[in-house]
């Protein structure tokens, strides 16, 4: 911890981590990662496969407990939370899109999208109207009554995105959300994610192995072998998304 900056993080950091170390059954995944994420920004975490992106997202989203180091959300510690506390945080404040859709197979698309709201204790009507709303925004209303096994991968991934956004969480974690998609669908999904983040003041943490896709972000952090070798790149806020494709 001697090398870590001792200064308190800026007040506008909604989520920050300092010196986190995490290993999976002895395989080191994160060796000393410090990162600060500002309220309402779109942050890209880039790095090749195996660089620890998914583990970092897991630690930041309170899914995995850290071995060492600190994670703070909204000026309250996450690393000291109990299992139940972390579950509540994930349920009420965070949304997650993974590299695979991972929908609940026995529920219809609509029920899958409404599920996080139902889990958080929202009313039936509110949950399903939000679900319908987000299914429409992601252009998958026709799939509402169907089950994941009857859909194609692109539709499933869009439903997973709708599920992450429907409860309007404070932070959305997207771990390679475009991995199962073709390029045009990648573009659409990332546009929807980033525009939803900007219009609803959500913070979006986007992990991707494709440096091309980092152009959607305000800021990029590179991760190599479980470390952040270069300090966070200078802010490129407002970089226009290249229109040519």
């Amino acid at each position: 911890m001697s090398a870590a900056p001792s200064a308190a993080p800026p007040d506008n950091d909604v989520l920050w981590a300092r010196g986190i170390v995490k290993s999976h059954n002895g395989t080191p995944a994160l060796r000393d990662v410090s990162i600060g994420i500002r309220e309402g920004e779109v942050l890209a975490i880039t790095g090749p496969r195996g660089s620890g992106k998914s583990t970092l997202l897991g630690c930041l989203s309170a899914l995995l407990p850290v071995d060492r180091g600190e994670v703070w959300f909204n000026s309250s510690p996450v690393h000291t939370l109990s299992r139940a506390g972390r579950e509540k945080l994930r349920r009420d404040r965070f949304g997650f899109v993974g590299p695979e859709p991972r929908l609940v197979p026995e529920l219809t698309a609509r029920e899958n999208v409404a599920l996080p709201l139902l889990l958080a204790g929202a009313g039936h009507k509110a949950a399903y109207s939000a679900a319908d709303d987000w299914l429409e925004r992601l252009d998958v209303t026709v799939c509402a009554k169907r089950r994941p096994s009857e859909l194609v991968q692109t539709e499933r991934q869009r439903i997973a995105v709708a599920r992450a956004l429907a409860p309007l969480p404070r932070v959305v974690f997207a771990d390679d959300p475009t991995a199962p998609l073709h390029r045009e669908a990648q573009d659409q999904v990332l546009r929807i994610l980033t525009s939803a983040a900007r219009s609803h003041q959500l913070t979006l943490v986007l992990a991707t192995h494709d440096p091309e896709l980092a152009r959607y972000a305000d800021r990029t952090v590179a991760l190599v072998d479980g470390r952040t070798p270069v300090p966070a790149a200078p802010v490129r806020r407002g970089t226009p998304v290249p229109a040519a494709y």
């Binding site: 945080l89 349920r91 997650f96 929908l103 609940v104 996080p116």
Partner: peptide, 16 residues
């Protein structure tokens, strides 16, 4: 197992 992992990720409590 995958469905249970998804529910866990969504923050569903073991009690539920």
């Amino acid at each position: 197992r995958p469905a249970t992992a998804t529910l866990h990720q969504l923050g569903a409590s073991p009690q539920l």
